[in-house]
């Protein structure tokens, strides 16, 4: 038996092992979260606000955090789309192929994508202090918008760059302007936009570091943009640091809710991607 065949077998074994390890991690995380979160999860958790003495284990729920997270994520997703779709069109339709300008812009988005959310948070907080703003829903929305714009741009751009040149030419040769060609482009990259949106929502809803300084935390549902807002990740974080077991259990429940939302989003992502691909030209 040659040594190279032994080596082949051993290496294959190691590879199988590492792949299984990845599964083990996924399984362990999901199992732990479900096992600890499920017993503490009940209807009250989802539908009521924290009552008096909630943080020493009395009754109440997490509605404030759920609604706060939804407000922030919803608003910043819309804002993020409004900003990033034009950018992607500009890079891919208005600028020429292999344009230097586009290449520099892409590098900048790559770097922005890599900047940690805590830095975004610190930066946004400085700006807010500069303008005399307190921690508020608006602050949270702004910082999350800034955070997800690079995610939006990068993931949509990836799809848009594969846009067949022939398709643009087909539209131009009918006499369409570049702006009118966008009608074509948007249908072709629709699945990309859908996945990018869900990816960003996932990131936005799970981010705790950025909203920590900017959105603050509160027990009530914000009624205006200038009021602080609670978010789910912070609900997990704060309650977990409490010494009281009942409160800690609620943190597990909140983590379960958060995980559930993220998993549903990624599942939806797959379904929608398949749905939107209907018109796409391969």
């Amino acid at each position: 038996m040659k040594i190279k065949f032994v080596e082949e077998k051993v290496m294959k074994g190691i590879m199988l092992l590492t792949t299984l390890l990845v599964f083990l991690f996924v399984g362990s995380i999901l199992y732990t979260i479900i096992k600890n979160g499920l017993p503490a999860l009940n209807w009250e958790m989802l539908t009521s606000l924290p009552g008096g003495g909630f943080y020493i284990g009395k009754e109440g729920g997490l509605l404030n955090a759920i609604v706060g997270s939804l407000y922030i994520v919803g608003a910043s997703t819309v804002l993020g789309l409004v900003v990033s779709i034009p950018v992607v069109f500009y890079l891919n339709v208005y600028l020429k192929r292999n344009s230097k300008r586009a290449s520099w812009a892409r590098l900048a988005y790559d770097v922005l994508f890599g900047i940690p959310s805590i830095v975004y948070g610190a930066f946004a907080f400085t700006i807010m202090i500069y303008f005399g703003l307190k921690t508020s829903l608006a602050g949270g929305i702004i910082v999350i918008t800034l955070l997800i714009i690079p995610i939006f741009i990068r993931s949509m751009d990836e799809i848009a760059r594969e846009l067949p040149q022939d398709m643009l030419h087909a539209s131009y040769s009918l006499g369409a302007t570049r702006f009118e060609t966008i009608k074509v482009v948007i249908r072709q990259i629709a699945p990309g936009i859908a996945t990018a949106t869900l990816l960003s929502i996932g990131r936005a809803i799970g981010d705790a570091a950025a909203v920590m300084f900017t959105a603050g935390y509160t027990d009530s549902i914000p009624t205006s943009l200038s009021q602080p807002a609670a978010t789910l990740p912070l609900a997990v974080f704060f309650q977990l640091s409490s010494p009281i077991p009942e409160v800690q259990e609620r943190a597990y429940a909140a983590a379960l809710i958060l995980t559930g939302i993220v998993l549903v989003l990624s599942l939806l992502g797959r379904i929608i991607t398949n749905r939107f691909s209907k018109n796409k030209i391969q």
């Binding site: 030419h169 009918l174 006499g175 249908r187």
Partner: peptide
């Protein structure tokens, strides 16, 4: 654009629009 309208283009691989 109005000059391009006067010329129909047929590319090597058919390229229908995504609609």
């Amino acid at each position: 654009t109005h000059i391009r309208r006067k010329m129909g283009l047929l590319s090597q691989r058919p390229c229908p629009l995504p609609m």
